[in-house]
């Protein structure tokens, strides 16, 4: 709706974002901490080989790249991603908890055809692939020291905890369902941060992520995006 108003305000042709048959998107209440813990406990053990087959047959590569390594910027690479995060995201698409805008449509519909075991298999397969890196670095990116400080130490004046405390010192993710951020496309990063900020993304338990985004400036978000795009996974050359 915001999108539509914005277009009208700027006098551009009006093509409503509502024209995507939104009626068919499932609706679920946001996670409570207990519900998510229960869901996580009942996550099946994933089978990597079955997951590989599902990824190939399910046309995942079409958008997410060969073996989950995608160099374009509108869909994420999945290789090396934390299995719990991938599993949660697939579940959240299925339940409608993750429906940011019309771009979520493909995944929301696709996931209706997958069960928990299959989601766990796909998540296990992608988690077993090496984390990609270095795909989005533009040559002149220089990391601002204040951003390194924000990542490593946080900002107590704004109650922002260090990014690294959940997402890892090398951005490899892993604390609970927190995703790997290393090597992520900057556009993807910014889009997600803004979606947390404006509330369109709210599948984080207890606003665990959204709360930190409210006080970040656009410049900081951009700088964090650039930082994670250039970060190397542990042990990478």
């Amino acid at each position: 709706m915001k999108f539509k108003r914005l277009l009208i305000a700027t006098g551009l042709s009006v093509f409503a974002a509502t024209s995507v048959m939104a009626s068919s998107v499932p609706h679920a209440e946001p996670w409570t901490a207990k519900e998510w813990l229960d869901a996580k406990r009942s996550m099946p053990q994933g089978d990597i080989d079955k997951g590989k087959l599902l990824a190939e047959q399910g046309y995942c590569y079409s958008c997410h790249g060969v073996e989950g390594n995608n160099p374009t910027q509108s869909t994420p690479s999945l290789a090396g991603q934390n299995a719990v995060y991938t599993y949660k995201m697939l579940s959240d698409y299925k339940s409608g908890r993750f429906y940011v805008d019309h771009k979520s449509h493909v995944m929301v519909h696709l996931m209706q055809y997958y069960d928990q075991q299959q989601m766990a298999d796909i998540a296990a397969y992608y988690a077993a692939q090496p984390l990609p890196h270095g795909e989005y670095i533009s040559k002149d990116v220089e990391v601002d020291p204040t951003i390194i400080r924000l990542v490593a130490k946080g900002d107590t004046s704004r109650m922002i905890v260090p990014c690294a405390s959940c997402h890892g010192a090398h951005g490899e993710g892993g604390m609970n369902e927190t995703p790997a951020l290393t090597g992520m496309s900057p556009r993807m990063f910014i889009r997600q941060m803004n979606a947390y900020k404006d509330g369109t993304r709210h599948n984080d338990v207890n606003s665990g992520m959204a709360q930190f985004t409210k006080d970040l400036t656009d410049e900081e978000i951009q700088a964090l995006a650039d930082y994670y795009a250039q970060l190397k996974p542990r042990g990478a050359q």
């Binding site: 771009k103 449509h105 493909v106 519909h109 696709l110 055809y113």
Partner: peptide, 10 residues
Amino acid sequence: HHIRASLAMN
């Protein structure tokens, strides 16, 4: 089929 429908609308 469902993905193609989403793509069609996109």
